[in-house]
Design a protein around this nucleic acid. Structure first.
Length: 493
RNA sequence: GUCCUCAUCGUCUAGUCAGGUCCAGGACACCGGCCUUUCACGCCGGCAACACCGGUUCAAAUCCGGUUGGGGACGCCA
């Protein structure tokens, strides 16, 4: 039985985006499920547009997602000798030929074909050159590329795709594609196959934009006398206008790094991605790592493309609402102990981290996280919306101020009075605090909500939050008292 | 233009291969209710789809043909 080997071959000409990450995820899931290997291969043969920084960004993105690989990263440029050897082999065996047509000539032909609404393929001018003609042109110093000689056969060229089924095309429809540039450097179609053969890749899982490339590559495998891998062409991810998503036209929101910065949980993001083109066949939507590996299968990948449901400028959702919903779900249900270090990271970034929260005050820290996480969307919310729990320089928001404080000028005396009463409490418990607040409201002839909501505004700066008395306990008697006494600045606007 | 390919709620999808159990199920979003000091969470309920036409069949989301629509490829990019 042959080993299961998959690869993720990004080209470092851009950032790791949603589509690429999903492709990596599917490859990873299948490799892990089958007990196979995943290989990371950086396809950097386009030296014009590739950069080491971009390659590193992709590697970092995979690491954040938790997509680990067993071999690599390999860099395709390091295997140039293999690619040239493959090209030489094809030339020697008569599967390829030298083409002396210039870019200008080809461009002119292409223009004419476009205008005449004819097929755009190469007209095979150089395919029928005699050995003498080729020698003469070379002697004259004319530059040439190497083209693959597509066999002239009856019937259909095709392959079996795990996702799409049988894919076929007439041999006549396949162009004599270029495999080596005029400067001698081999091109993607060839390099990719040569590498996959050398790396003994058994399954090629990639986007549907490669469907027609695969037809050509099948020919390459055959000419190179190598066994065909299993192909699985996964659906593309489109935007809500059905256009292919790209960093250029969609910006940050399609890059993996954006989700890292926005405070997504890596696993939540994977969980969202896997559902964009695959389903387990039942209603399960949340998976642990092991569950997903177990449930995943190439056969259940969808045929049709998926839409990344992002609306630019949406006031409520900064990305696909489903992605946010999944992130919220994990934020609420994951063990607090696992969440804590991720929150710590965000608090550190916001410069409000206290080392004691990881040691003697760890219990308190975990309790606060458990208390406030229900209302949050991302990790970043802990440092912004949750700031009052961790720092004194929290922001008093406009809305609660206008709704709960400014309409009641008497709060200027009420809140300090309440502060005094709370300061006198021993023990300081949620029950005692509530009792105190309610009794005072009663004495003032006010509804308890007036005091409670004003307290919330003064103590947390927020319009909403957990049960007020749990909040008081979480923030602590001393801080609550001092925040309530400092009420004047609320009216100073 | 040529070729390849896809088509179920606004979005992600189940159901299609083995036609009846589907006047189509789940999730997100949206709307309403319960809970409540607030807002969430949670729970309950609602809105909402088989692209179209024809054929096969007792019976079609499901099989066949066509139409329309979407996507991809057609590079000395990957």
């Amino acid at each position: 039985m042959t080993e299961i080997r998959l690869r993720f071959p990004p080209s470092p000409t851009g950032y790791l985006h949603i589509g690429g990450a999903r492709t990596a995820l599917y490859n990873w899931l299948y490799a892990r499920k089958m007990g196979g290997k995943l290989i990371l291969r950086i396809e950097d043969t386009d030296t014009e547009r590739s950069s080491e920084a971009l390659a590193q960004g992709i590697i970092d993105g995979l690491e954040w997602l938790g997509i680990d690989y067993d071999e690599g990263p390999y860099y395709q440029t390091e295997f140039a000798a293999d690619h040239r050897a493959a090209a030489a082999k094809l030339l020697a065996s008569g599967h390829a030929y030298k083409c002396f047509c210039t870019k200008e000539e080809l461009e002119a032909k292409r223009e004419r074909a476009l205008a005449a609404k004819l097929p755009l393929g190469y007209d095979r001018t150089c395919r029928y050159l005699t050995a003498e003609e080729v020698a003469a042109k070379e002697a004259a110093g004319l530059p040439s590329v190497i083209r693959f000689k597509v066999p002239e056969r009856q019937g259909m060229l095709g392959y079996d795709d795990v996702v799409l089924g049988r894919i076929e095309a007439d041999y006549k429809e396949i162009d004599d594609f270029v495999i080596v540039r005029s400067d001698g450097s081999p091109l993607y179609l060839l390099c990719n196959v040569a590498d996959d053969i050398r790396d003994r890749i058994s399954h090629v899982v990639r986007g549907q934009d490669h469907m027609t490339n695969t037809l050509k590559q099948v020919l390459l495998y055959e000419a190179l006398e190598a066994p065909l891998p299993v192909f699985a062409h996964i659906p593309l991810t489109l935007d809500n206008k059905k256009a292919k998503i790209s960093k250029r036209s969609h910006g940050e929101v399609v890059s993996v790094q954006f989700y890292q910065e926005m405070g997504f949980l890596p696993w939540a993001f994977n969980n969202y991605l896997v559902l964009l083109g695959w389903s387990p066949g039942n209603d399960q939507e949340f998976f642990s790592r092991d569950e997903l590996i177990q449930a995943f299968s190439l056969e259940r990948i969808n045929k049709s493309s998926a839409v990344f449901n992002y609306t630019k400028g949406d006031a409520k959702f900064f990305t696909d609402p489903k992605a946010i919903a999944i992130n919220e779900h994990y934020l609420r249900v994951m063990p607090v102990e696992e969440l804590a270090p991720l929150v710590e990271e965000r608090l550190r970034a916001a410069d409000i981290w206290d080392a004691a929260w990881a040691t003697e005050k760890r219990d308190w820290f975990l309790r606060v996280i458990a208390l406030i996480r229900d209302r949050f969307h991302t990790l970043n919310d802990f440092a912004s919306l949750g700031r009052a729990y961790f720092a004194e320089d929290y922001v008093i928001e406009e809305k609660p101020l206008k709704k709960n404080v400014l309409p009641y000028p008497d709060l200027k005396t009420w809140l300090p009075e309440l502060a005094d009463r709370l300061a006198a409490l021993a023990p300081f418990t949620a029950e005692n605090a509530e009792e105190t607040a309610r009794r005072m409201a009663d004495e003032l002839g006010q509804k308890p909500g007036v005091l409670i909501n004003a307290m919330r505004t003064a103590v947390t700066g927020q319009l909403a939050g957990p049960s007020m008395f749990d909040v008081l306990l979480a923030i602590g008697q001393d801080k609550v008292v001092s925040r309530l006494r400092r009420i004047d600045h609320l009216f100073a606007v």
